[in-house]
Computed example of a mutant assay.
Amino acid sequence: MTGRRRAARAVLALAVGTALLTGCGGRPTTHHKPGTSHQEATGANGTLLTARDSTGHRLREVPAAGAPALRIETRPDTEGGWNVHLQAERFRFTPESTGGAALPGRGHARLLVDGREAARTYGPWAHIPAGARTLTARLYADDHTAWAVAGRPVEATVRLGAPADTPASPAPTFTAAPGRTLAVTITGDSVQPPPSRVEVRQGERITLQVTGDHTDTVHVHGYDRELPLTPDRTATLTFTADRTGLFEVETHESGLVLTQLVVR
């Protein structure tokens, strides 16, 4: 082998070694998955902050424009607990690349129940057990840094109602009660019989028969029922007393109290 050939091979070996050390584009490389470019893995992937979130993970700051966004929808599960639907925008779950580089708009989510980390999810659906009061979902990059905007993690929080495995209070049911008719006559500013409190069972059907000597409107407070009056004609209003409490029946124009219903 001549000296010229040895020199050429030495130059070639040096060039190959340099390429292996510097990687793509002659710069030090960061880990990235097959199928993603070096630019994707190292550029536009946010600024790594020294601040950390409540779980101890560092924040990765990205501009508000185009940043991921998150909403949470919860549904009671028939076997207890809550089914959670994470509705993410400008973000997709990438379980296949967890542990890799932080790529824009990719990663996973962590669920915090009552402020404590409870689970990690690699898709939009998850389940949490009953008994929780609040649920927070937070988005993370594949390298486990938390996506953040203006120094705050990208997250959403919802308050949860009664646990799904606790039977809800049944809607009130009414035992059929006999109807009752209340007849009232208005003459000038006089009401007959004189106004008094009438005890009524919840669920009872009430019929008001009002006869007056002037035009007016009868209003049943609490039930928002009205009855127009025509002079010297009997007007009738029938309704079910399905709300408990004290309710006045009065006229609008003359302001006369006709009776008070006490529904128990």
Rank of each mutant, 00 (worst) to 15 (best):
A44D: 15
Q87K: 11
A164M: 05
T42K: 06
S254V: 03
F93M: 08
P193C: 05
L246C: 03
V218K: 01
L135H: 01
G107W: 00
A102N: 08
T240Q: 07
Q192C: 00
V198Q: 13
V263F: 07
L227Q: 05
L103Y: 10
D53H: 10
A51N: 12
E248S: 12
L139H: 00
V210S: 02
R138L: 07
W147E: 07
E73I: 11
G43H: 12
P163F: 07
T50Q: 14
L229C: 06
G255W: 00
G151P: 02
V149D: 06
R52E: 14
D216M: 01
I128E: 01
A162Y: 00
L182S: 03
H32R: 13
R92K: 11
A8I: 13
P63G: 11
D53N: 15
S196Y: 07
T230W: 08
T207V: 12
G179D: 13
P63S: 10
L237T: 11
T18P: 00
T173E: 13
S196F: 03
G123L: 02
P34S: 06
D224S: 11
T29N: 09
A51T: 13
S196L: 02
D53S: 08
T240R: 09
L59C: 08
R116S: 09
L103A: 06
P129M: 03
A44R: 13
A10D: 08
A13M: 07
T217Y: 00
F93V: 13
F93A: 06
T244Y: 04
P28N: 07
L227E: 07
G56W: 04
A164Y: 01
T47D: 14
G3L: 11
T50V: 09
N45E: 04
Q202M: 12
V198M: 08
A183I: 10
A7P: 10
P178D: 12
A7L: 14
A118E: 05
T2V: 00
T173N: 09
A13Y: 00
S97Y: 13
P170Y: 03
A183R: 15
